[in-house]
Design a protein around this nucleic acid. Structure first.
Lengths: 345, 345
DNA sequence: CTGAAAGCGCTAACAA
DNA sequence: TTGTTAGCGCTTTCAG
């Protein structure tokens, strides 16, 4: 009854769920089915085709969990976003999402899936070990060191396939890709001074080492120029940032005439707060951001900022990660920042 | 030699990789270790604590792959982005990323991980089955129906835990969350006409059903008002969009005085192209976008647009998904759009 | 070229 | 309360 034409149009009379079901239907052993589906050469071309045809018509799908467990690889890359300093900061934060988008594109091109996890390090000391030990991912991309530099360093000694986005410290062990934040900070301060500012402020949290480096660069330039610089502390979560920036602007020392914001998001928030008070930008106060996110060119006036090449950074992270998965021990990569002159400074 | 103080300060002399290693160290059976680590009540509190302590000191991490395979659940939600119409469209597209950010936040709050996959339906007919059958995810969120409406409908009959972002069609089977696109299109056209436009254009691809609905709504209003409306076709990928929009603007029928763009991204591209040619907005040409992405308020002039409440939509998708995972068969949700009046129309 | 068998690491009956 | 056992579904030796 299994005529030559019988099985062509017929769809899944009997749904094959496991490779063993399929083996029974094909009259072969599970091992052969496995080999056939993997397209291995050690299987007869005819049986291979027959089995693949059968798999299709019975709607068979390989159970990846089982397959992965057996093969000890998953085709999944973990992306962790540690939120150490700023609990309220959401994944939806612009910089993270922009970077994540490029990472997703690059990983997809390599045929890998991406597993996203937001971690709160102080609620879960063991987040890195847990993620690595879970067996669910073949490698790990960490977006931002947050306050986890030491933990990452420790793990890096015994776990190769990990690449981190963040700041590079002299002599560190873990492979990091990121912008030269200190240099970026210098660019920003230099420009503010050049644009006529005589009293600088850094807007942002100086705890995270990326921001600390930006601030340090700015301080160095300010010191050389004999210009004072103060810190206007602000967090990254939308609500807190809005409240804090508004407060800072409303109580701003009138002497302050140049603001270097830790991120474009903060810069724009600040810009809006200043506009609301009819403070002229860049007339009375100059502003420079950091990142050059897509919206930076669209503000009013358009935002002068220090550009990080996020797309190049993402591609580099993925390339380095795959080399590390292959066993190579790669160097870190520090990308140069670029000052983008627009309308705010 | 296993003195009371012996095992406190000592860290992992012997690294325990499997539950069996741990069982040996603890002098109990693997089953007991499993129960202890799961915090089950059917295990002696003392042995439980002892085993957990041991696990910690030996850096033990449960292998999730094995655990998941056995328990037939994963704690992972798949997020698929089908790119049917627009192959070049990257995941990094603003709307997708904004929605994804909110989804990630919501899923994380439920303790779930998110697995992201970009799919090219015409290169992989079976993407939905494959994803579902993989066993790697407990449920599926699909962002955008693209040209896959029928495939999704088919699958929805036999797979409950799936929620789709997109357009609602009368009588459809799959659970969808999305904005009333037709109504949004009507709002846009109404406003353009009210603002004085007498020759409308729809900027965008009218193939995807979301966009088709927006266009249909605009057509209805235009028809009633006796105002003509044409289509300026444009794709979503950054490069193509830029080229196409620039071309349209450079060869724009001078009669056109009102443009309804399918998305904010296209609207901003158009706005920039018009500015470059010194065309007055909204003086000569009025523009309305769709989405109200974060940057829409920051353009120059600020963009009038039709708002989708992406955050509410994301939360709804996640809520509905978990109810479906629990076995409930939920209704679709159509969110109302809101016209946001700003400076371009 | 194919089948049999072992086992990836874990969990959940079922006994004890 | 704990141990024993039988798999989850797949891949890969090792024989044949």
């Amino acid at each position: 009854m299994t005529g030559a034409e019988g099985d062509e149009g017929s769809s899944a009379e009997e749904r094959a769920r496991t490779i063993t079901d399929l083996a029974r239907l094909a009259g072969v052993s599970p091992g052969t089915v496995s080999r056939a589906l993997a397209g291995k050469s050690l299987v007869n071309a005819k049986t291979r085709d027959r089995i693949q045809q059968l798999a299709r018509s019975h709607g068979f799908q390989l159970n990846r969990l089982a397959s992965n467990l057996r093969r000890q690889r998953t085709g999944v890359i973990g992306v962790a976003i540690p939120l150490g300093h700023d609990r309220g900061q959401q994944i939806s934060d612009s910089f993270f999402m922009t970077l994540l988008g490029y990472l997703a594109d690059a990983l997809t091109e390599h045929g890998y899936d991406l597993m996203l996890r937001r971690v709160l390090p102080d609620q879960d000391e063991d987040w890195l070990h847990r993620y690595i030990g879970s067996g669910m991912v073949d490698g790990l991309l960490v977006i931002g060191q947050s306050d986890q530099f030491e933990r990452i360093e420790t793990v890096a000694g015994s776990y190769l396939p990990m690449v981190v986005w963040g700041n590079h410290q002299e002599g560190q062990r873990h492979c990091v890709v990121g912008t030269d934040n200190r240099l970026g900070g210098k660019f920003a301060a230099e420009r503010l001074v050049e644009a006529g500012a005589r009293n600088l402020a850094f807007l942002g949290d100086i705890e995270p080492i990326e921001f600390a480096a930006r601030f340090a660069g700015a301080c160095e330039v300010a010191g050389q120029a004999g210009v004072p610089i103060c810190v206007l502390s602000a967090h990254l979560s939308r609500e807190r940032a809005l409240a804090e920036v508004t407060h800072h602007v409303n109580t701003l020392d009138p002497a302050i005439d140049g603001i270097f914001a830790a991120t474009d998001t903060l810069a724009v928030t600040c810009l809006n707060a200043l506009s609301a008070r009819r403070t002229a930008v860049p007339g009375q106060v100059r502003i420079i951001g950091f990142d050059d996110l897509p919206f930076a060119a669209q503000t009013m006036p358009p935002l002068t900022t220090v550009r990080q090449d996020i797309e190049a950074g993402a591609r580099a992270m993925v390339d380095l990660l795959f080399r590390r998965i292959a066993g190579e021990s790669t160097e870190s990569l520090v990308l140069p920042p670029h000052l983008i002159l627009r309308g705010t400074a």
